[in-house]
Amino acid sequence: MAPTYPTAHTTTIANPRLRILNKLKNGEYPLMTFNALPSVRLAQILALTDLDGVVIDCEHGHIGDDAMHNSVAAISALGKSPIIRIRGPAHDIIKRALDTGAHGIMVPQINNAEEARQVVQSSKFPPYGVRGQGSAFPAIAHGLTIPEYMRSANETVLTMVQIETVAGLQNVDAIAAVPGVDVLFIGPNDLAQSLLGYVPARGDEPDFVAALDKIVAASKRHGKWCGRLVNNGAAAKEAKGKYDTVAITGEVKAIQSFYAGEIEVARS
């Protein structure tokens, strides 16, 4: 069923501040990373790289409301897109995240189309959803006035849903068909745990490879973008062409990896 209203895929609104959306629409393969530590300075450091966006991880990261607001403001002020991975699909959690001015949300462990529809409803202002208005902050991060934000948000704020369970995989075609879902984002570790019973996946398991292909195919069939987490730049380069966007690890693992490698060299 085609949407009866404009979405991120069909919008004609051009806002140069929305870097992830703009690159997706232009087929330019935007790159992100995950941010798990609550620091406005760290958010600035990540945004000052050549990344296109930062996923502020409020699901697994050590990030509360204050850090969430501060990080969105810092990242957007530096011309990059803040995306918030929320801790669950509840309406109040979605509203709180979007009221920071996030350029999009990523919702974990979506298992069926009804859950996806509820996420979309909470992400859209009336008449297309039930999101409430009351915050001046979202417009700031979009570089707009409040009325301009209200007119544009329904079709420019990205709604990303994560496919990372066996149930989500089984229902991926129906999830991808939901109007207002913009991106299917694969959580490879949770998907491997759910599908294979262990993490990390080697990456060559037939069931795992078939699962990834199924998600990508469903995305393309319904005209949605597809992304995933990868471990490093080489994997991101390899994924280009198959996926529309990737997140290259997270800053905690990047810091650990750097020091582990340098210490190994120092002690050798």
Results as ranks from 00 to 15, higher is better:
Thr145Phe: 12
Ala74Ile: 05
Glu164Trp: 08
Leu48Cys: 12
Gly143Ser: 04
Leu144Asp: 03
Ile110Asn: 03
His142Tyr: 14
Gln109Met: 15
Gln121Gly: 09
Arg117Val: 00
Glu164Lys: 06
Ile84Tyr: 06
Ser71Thr: 10
Leu48Asp: 14
Ala116Val: 08
Ile146Phe: 10
Met150Ser: 04
Gln162Asn: 08
Ala74Thr: 05
Ser123Glu: 07
Glu115Met: 15
Pro89Gly: 01
Ala102Met: 11
Ile56Cys: 01
Val172Met: 05
Leu158Trp: 04
Gly101Thr: 09
Ala73Leu: 15
Arg87Tyr: 13
Ala136Thr: 09
Ile140Phe: 15
Leu78Ala: 00
Ser76Asn: 03
Gly101Trp: 11
Asp52Cys: 03
Ala97Gln: 03
Leu42Ile: 14
His60Met: 09
His91Gln: 13
Arg151Pro: 01
Ile94Tyr: 01
Ala102Cys: 11
Leu158Tyr: 04
Ser81Arg: 09
Lys95Thr: 11
Thr49Val: 05
Ile56Asn: 05
Gly61Trp: 02
Ile75Gly: 01
Val157Glu: 10
Ile93Asn: 04
Ile83Thr: 02
Met68Thr: 03
His142Asp: 04
Ile105Asn: 07
Ser39Ile: 09
Leu78Thr: 03
Lys95Asn: 12
Ile94Leu: 07
Ala74Tyr: 06
Arg41Ala: 13
Arg85Asp: 06
Phe125Met: 11
Ala136Ile: 11
Gly132Tyr: 14
Leu46Phe: 07
Phe137Gly: 07
Ser71Trp: 07
Thr49Lys: 10
Gly143Gln: 06
Ala141Met: 06
Arg96Phe: 12
Val178Gly: 02
Glu115His: 10
Gly61Phe: 02
Ala174Arg: 11
Gln162Ala: 03
Gly79Tyr: 11
Leu169Lys: 02
Asn111Ala: 14
Arg87Asn: 14
Asn70Ala: 15
Glu155Leu: 07
Ile163His: 06
Gly168His: 06
Asn70Cys: 08
Asp50Arg: 12
Gly104Ser: 05
Val55Tyr: 06
His142Val: 02
Pro38Thr: 04
Pro127Met: 11
Thr145Pro: 07
Leu48Gln: 15
Leu169Arg: 02
Met160Asn: 09
Val40His: 07
Glu155Gln: 14
Asp66Trp: 14
Leu78Trp: 05
Arg85Leu: 03
Ile45Gln: 13
Ser123Gly: 01
Pro126Tyr: 10
Gln162Asp: 03
Ile56Gly: 07
Gln118Met: 14
Gly132Val: 04
Ala97Met: 05
Thr49Pro: 08
Ile86Asp: 00
Gly134Asn: 10
Ile86Gly: 04
Leu78His: 13
Ile163Met: 04
Ser135Cys: 13
Ile93Gly: 01
Ala153Met: 14
Leu51Cys: 05
Pro38Met: 07
Ile56Ala: 02
Val172Thr: 00
Ala153Ser: 15
Asn111Leu: 08
Pro147Lys: 11
Asn70Glu: 14
Lys124Pro: 08
Pro108Gln: 09
Ile110Tyr: 04
Ala153Ile: 09
Lys80Gly: 02
Arg117Phe: 10
Arg151Cys: 00
Asp57Cys: 03
Met150Gly: 01
Gln133Gly: 08
Leu42Thr: 12
Ile56Leu: 06
Pro108Lys: 04
